[in-house]
Design a protein around this nucleic acid. Structure first.
Length: 526
RNA sequence: GCGGGUGUAGCUCAGUGGUAGAGCGUCACGUUGCCAACGUGAAUGUCGAGGGUUCGAGUCCCUUCACCCGCUCCA
């Protein structure tokens, strides 16, 4: 029985061997955190993005109670005015200063390592703890004080002065104590900016500095007014975008899971504040179902509602949709469905227009109610306008691609082809293959027209080389759900063999029905 | 940034100072004819890079680079 680590290694090996995923720039020794999709991988990922667009944008499931709503798409530039990232909070908060202990080699976030200076008369004691907040630091410090230190300070009873400073801001005369080993060996805070910087124009000066977007969401928010003004969308509605994003991860890990360049599939859904909870629940359920329908087993898919303490300060609720990858004992996030309140539109209103209500919309429902009540057109008052709330289902295209690969990977030693990729047919890179059993006796002449017909409608491959077993095995590794084989009997009665990937079963159908059969089976999702 | 590991054919690896190899895969030809069959043949190497020691380095020494794992981080 292979371990989870061994399974992951086999998946990685198969992905490379069969051209799903390569390390970027391999011929130059590679580059960490960047990946290339090969011929099969790019088809798979494209299918994932296309299916997402089809199911979420062009034809989303009906809203709560059959409620109608609109979805539209945008495709925004990767480099935006840098002020976008000031407004979004990424310039201020997207870098984490870190401190290292030169003694025990541990590293801490500078705002989470606290040093306490406790003094009474001439006695001064420094104690360091790890803590999320000052309150926690106080508590932890009191627990961490040794008996000797308590005696020096005359605790309990006598008064002493307490000062708490996070490691990011220690005064120069303080000891830089490490929370782990308590030695005086912490470095000064060093900043790790997680946004990639670049320069727009020929001059590389501060004024031309720009960033590669760390998320696609801000392009949507920045175009909120444009979309409202150029289309006839009415709240509630959503704007979707699929595109690359970049984060300079300190340490990319776990195959493609934490990449520095990755692709997001994001929706910002705008709704009335009074209905935001309802839409949040709608999108949470829609997104969970979407993964399930594409064949992700429910016991590996783990929706997890974030606790209050985990939530970003502006959020009223977030569900992480997590998947249990073979490389980890903990489920890892595929998507976050976040209730973001009016934080983003207000932030851009304030930064771009100097008014946090700049992107408020007219409350049509209230207008019509008032008009009915007053028996005529009512004047618009500030109360008739509101800044929409936002529900943000933000999915990782590469992460889901990886989850699909892991989920599809199957191993059955009793088969002639023990390794096979059990992709959902909608996602399979190749939908069918056509084989003449042997490359002679007129069989290729029968097989080729069948191949050409299918290929017009579905990604399909023709293979006449080597033994039939090898050809089935190759298609199993590529995750092709069906193979049509033309043999001697075809010449007699016109039937061909259809061989199924998942159970290697075979049925005979008339050669004229191949495309029809394939279409039917793909539609059924079998 | 710290510690550990690994770099030889597309992949898995052998080669312990003396001609760069095997298996698998790929390709060609033949044979077989429904589950990685068999035979013959072929292609594929800056042995991660640079320097040193040596008559001679894949092998020993130094430096360096890249990747992987752990720590750290994951907004």
């Amino acid at each position: 029985m292979p371990t989870q680590t061994e399974i992951m290694e086999r998946i990685v090996a198969l992905c490379r061997r069969r051209g799903f995923i390569f390390g970027s720039s391999e011929i130059y020794g590679g580059i960490g955190g960047f990946w290339d999709y090969g011929p099969l991988g790019c088809e798979l990922k494209k299918n994932i993005k296309d299916v997402w667009w089809e199911d979420m944008v062009r034809n989303p499931p009906p809203g709560p109670g059959g409620r109608e709503f609109q979805m539209v798409g945008v495709d925004c530039s990767i480099i935006m005015n840098p002020n976008v990232w000031v407004a979004s909070g990424h310039v201020g908060g997207f870098s984490d200063p870190m401190v290292d202990c030169t003694e025990c080699k541990k590293r801490f976030r500078a705002d989470k390592a606290w040093v306490a200076r406790l003094a009474q008369d001439s006695v001064v004691v420094f104690v360091a703890v790890e803590a999320e907040s000052r309150e926690e630091a106080v508590q932890a410090t009191m627990q961490a004080l040794t008996a000797r230190q308590k005696k020096d300070l005359g605790m309990p009873g006598k008064t002493f002065t307490e000062e708490y400073v996070a490691a990011g801001a220690l005064p120069s005369h303080w000891k830089r104590i490490c929370p782990a080993c308590q030695s005086d060996a912490l470095t000064s805070p060093r900043s790790f900016n997680l946004m990639f910087e670049t320069f727009v124009g020929a001059l590389q000066d501060a004024a031309s500095k720009a960033y590669l977007r760390p998320e696609t969401a801000q392009g949507i928010f920045a175009n909120f007014r444009n979309v409202m003004d150029s289309t006839r969308v009415k709240i509630p509605f959503g704007i979707a975008q699929v595109g690359k994003a970049f984060r300079n991860e300190i340490n990319p890990r776990n195959y493609t899971f934490r990449s520095r360049e990755f692709e997001q599939m994001e929706i910002e859904f705008f709704c009335h504040p009074g209905e935001s909870r309802m839409w949040y629940e709608y999108w949470r359920d829609v997104r969970i179902n979407w993964y399930t329908q594409l064949g992700i087993k429910s016991d590996k898919l783990r929706p997890r509602e974030q606790g209050k303490e985990e939530l970003a300060h502006y959020s009223c609720g977030t569900t992480d949709i997590e998947y249990l990858f073979p490389f980890s004992e903990e489920p890892q996030e595929l998507e976050g469905v976040a209730h973001r309140g009016d934080f983003d539109l207000k932030a851009h209103g304030k930064h771009a227009k100097g008014d946090e209500n700049a992107f408020a919309v007219v409350d049509d429902d209230k207008q019509s109610r008032d008009r009915q009540g007053a028996g005529g057109a009512a004047e618009k008052t500030p109360a008739d306008r509101y800044v929409p709330h936002v529900i943000e289902p933000s999915a990782g295209a590469d992460r889901f691609t990886l989850a699909v690969l892991c989920e599809a990977y199957s191993f059955d030693e009793s088969r002639a082809s023990p390794e096979f990729m059990k992709f959902h047919p909608r996602l399979a890179p190749i939908k069918a293959a056509v084989f003449p059993l042997v490359a002679k006796d007129g069989l290729p002449e029968i097989a080729e027209p069948i191949f050409r017909e299918i290929k017009k409608h579905y990604p399909c491959q023709y293979d006449a080389k080597q033994s039939i077993g090898k050809r089935y095995a190759r298609m199993d590794e590529a995750g092709t759900p069906f193979c049509f084989t033309i043999d001697g009997q075809t010449k007699v009665d016109g039937t061909v063999t259809v061989r199924s990937r998942d159970d290697a079963s075979q049925v005979r159908i008339d050669k004229s029905r191949c495309l029809e059969y394939l279409r039917e089976r793909l539609r059924l999702g079998v």
